[in-house]
Nucleic acid binder design. Sequence first.
RNA 1: GCCCCCGUAGCCCAACAGGCAGAGGCAGCCCCCUUAAAAGGGGUUGAGUGCCGGUUCGAAUCCGGUCGGGGGCACCA
Length: 936
Amino acid sequence: MSDEPAHRYTAAMAGEIERRWQDHWTERGTFHAPNPVGKLAGPVPEDKLFVQDMFPYPSGAGLHVGHPLGFIGTDVYARYHRMNGRNVLHTMGFDAFGLPAEQYAVQTGQHPRKTTEDNIETYLRQIRRLGLGHDDRRRISTIDPEYYRWTQWIFLQIFNSWYDDTVGRARPIAELVAQFESGERATPDGRAWAELSHADRQAVLNEHRLVYLSDAPVNWVPGLGTVISNEEVTADGRSERGNFPVFRKNLRQWMMRITAYSDRLIDDLERLDWPEKVKAMQRNWIGRSHGARVRFACGGESIEVFTTRPDTLFGATYMVLAPEHPLVDVIAAPAWPSEVDGRWTGGADTPGEAIAAYRRAASMKSDLDRQENKDKTGVFTGAYAVNPVNGASIPVFIADYVLMGYGTGAIMAVPGQDQRDWDFATAFGLPIIRTVAPSEGFDGEAYTGDGPAINSGFLDGMDIAEAKKAVIGWLEEHGHGRGTVQYKLRDWLFSRQRYWGEPFPIVYDEAGTPIAVPESMLPVELPEVDDYSPTTYDPEDADTEPSPPLSKANGWVEVELDLGDGVRTYRRDTNTMPNWAGSCWYQLRYVDPADDERFCAPENERYWLGPRPEQHGATDPGGVDLYVGGVEHAVLHLLYARFWQKVLFDLGHVSGDEPYRRLFNQGYIQAYAYADARGVYVNAAEVEEREGRFFHGDTEVFQEYGKMGKSLKNVVTPDEMCELYGADTFRLYEMSMGPMDVSRPWATKDVVGAQRFLQRLWRAIIDETTGEVRVVDGDVDEPTLRLLHKTIAGVHEDYSNLRYNTAGAKLIELTNHITKHHGDGCPRPVAEAMVQLLAPMCPHIAEELWSRLGHPESLAHGPFPTADPRYLVEDTAEYPIQVNGKVRARVTVPASATQEEIKSAALSEEKVAALVADKTPKKVIVVPGRLVNVVL
RNA sequence: GCCCCCGUAGCCCAACAGGCAGAGGCAGCCCCCUUAAAAGGGGUUGAGUGCCGGUUCGAAUCCGGUCGGGGGCACCA
């Protein structure tokens, strides 16, 4: 330790260099990216790049080494392009509203603003050490009133819009009012617009607004004291946050009409450069299916069903309504028909009693029960319906395998082609008619494959696609139904009953009509309250009601305003927005963070985010050039943000209709955790491996693999890594672990490899004992030049394709070559190029070496080396010679050799000639630049 | 149950578009430096690509099957 050379690149020296360069960059605003107009205006090159990390939430727990993986990845990309002359926008702000912040504040007994701002400071301190080239003028935070002013403004834009299906886009609500006024569009009850009261008009408009109040059933979570959106409910019917039971409850809540955009949200995925996996998840979530709605007569009523298989209509042998379906009580027979099947009655004396009992039982089942137990249950309503295609009379059941929330809440059951219907039919003794001939050898139950229609009258012989078309035509012609499209996507529940979120810019008049707060009065600031902790309940108690903390802010809820007809008293909306709101548009604010007239100046928006068809193709939607984050936001954030962008686009506020042109999902850094026999976790850093088993001291412990987390005692922090090795070593190691999109285990012991490399590179340029630059001037030998230019070319390509692991490997290779062949000093041109190539990944050491090599200017804006093609072509080529696919020999020929020349060189090679002997090769394959294969 | 992704040295990972299985790192081994040590230097060993079959002159790569791991959806008509 003591006699370590004075000028070795140690962790301590790295730390000193890093602090110095970070200060240098900050002082000079090295990473300030100019805008075309406004407060950040400056000279802008046409060539720009907007790189963005997914909005981090500033957790109180601080960062572990997994968090910065993507941040470093985007930084390398940004630095690479900045060095190559592009105007690069890269920054980072904070998504700081939301439940976790509020819960953390409640735990620590402090105001959420205080804890959140403290956490942001901690977060910034941690990421600052990493040397990320952020434009710090563009840091924003969703909790800043100057930010959420515009979140509220966008909310009002959406509120004041409606979706015009005839033109397929959102329009200002005033244009709808004009249609009603002129009579171009009739009001729902046919009265003239002028005859409607103010409240009536608002009620009509509420049915069209893209944000509207709804009394529909919503997801109520007593354990959280708030309602949540469908996207936040897990598959087993619990809240994603907190894992509490979720209950369906009718509550008056704000909804966003995202369903108006279902088709565009699906269709526009094709124009995005996104991972297929994420696109598939969004398609799946939106759940578009094509089919038909068919009406079945039932007594004096008509039951409408949705089906994706109208071609199987002849096989419909019964119908099922969801237990909550409104027609159930209307159609239910007063008494069982004679000779009713005992399985159908549920043991009740009348259909009415059976239905009541069944509904009671169904309501007691949780979603989880329903999923675990897929045995089919149901009761007969006593009613029969008529199959429109053949006049058959079929019984109508209720069963909980039919959901009120999808389609029409009613189905035609075709047991021959649907396994669920098959199961029900078998349990209840109902007939099964196959209407598609199963393929040969099929021995299953319901047959869902393709085949010719059978038992289907005029459809017989047609395949599924033909039969669908034919039957839809028939239904439409005879007025029994029509082809239609169905979606799983539901409107977005947008209100939360929490404190720590954006207040709604809405007040209510005496009649309870919601009124937009005028733009001039934004932001509507979050009031101080004595008790910001929400009222939560017994998580299992469904009979509770949300009680928003803001409703307790007495001086705030009641407000005197003059909204045009004199000063009156209004009540504020006491909900807050979900924490997804702030992240729906933050890229727009990064672009223009200080504009206080607009959320973003159009010139700046167009420059950074506008479509560039000449560069990205005719259908380019625009958006952030590279957006990096985890796959966990595939449906939530990424769907909501696309929706807002499209509304803003329709209203003419932005020039592109997608927010993120290219999306990249980084993998996760995971870690081993160790628990002893009792299941108690031990500090992973203290575990030793001996003969394939693991020990903590003398106690045997057992390895698990997964997340890094405090409770698992396996957290490694970037701070520790910077301390032990320096930020550049840490950055390089993270980038070298593998491709960016692959998840992998953290291994602190491997970090030393990255450090040794940087030490070797440092030593090639700096004398470790004197600290003098030891590069040599003069000509560089040919092999070194060849390797150098090959490295330049390869690293260029690797950086632009986010393959940092292979870029790192190429640099190590070059450095090893220099160490081996130029131990007495690195040739200057090689040293300079090497430093430039390294700079995106290890910017501090690169700046330091660059400056020691005599360059006063920062390396942040280049230069970056380009490969000289002369050194990329070899003058000779070595060909492996395969005989029957096995490599037997090698020949070296001039690179200019023709295929014939290569062939004869190969055949005359000694070992090959011996193998060929007197035989005549059947074939000789020459792959130019690759190899020769002789087939005997 | 349905859909998607991934299996290459002890470990993390390379291999352009089917063409010599290896770029790099960790660990191991040998040597050097050192009073000693290593987060120093130099060198070196190591897998036939999870398994079976097919296509091909040639397969880690393409196709079919199978096993293992990860993820998404799930009574959505």
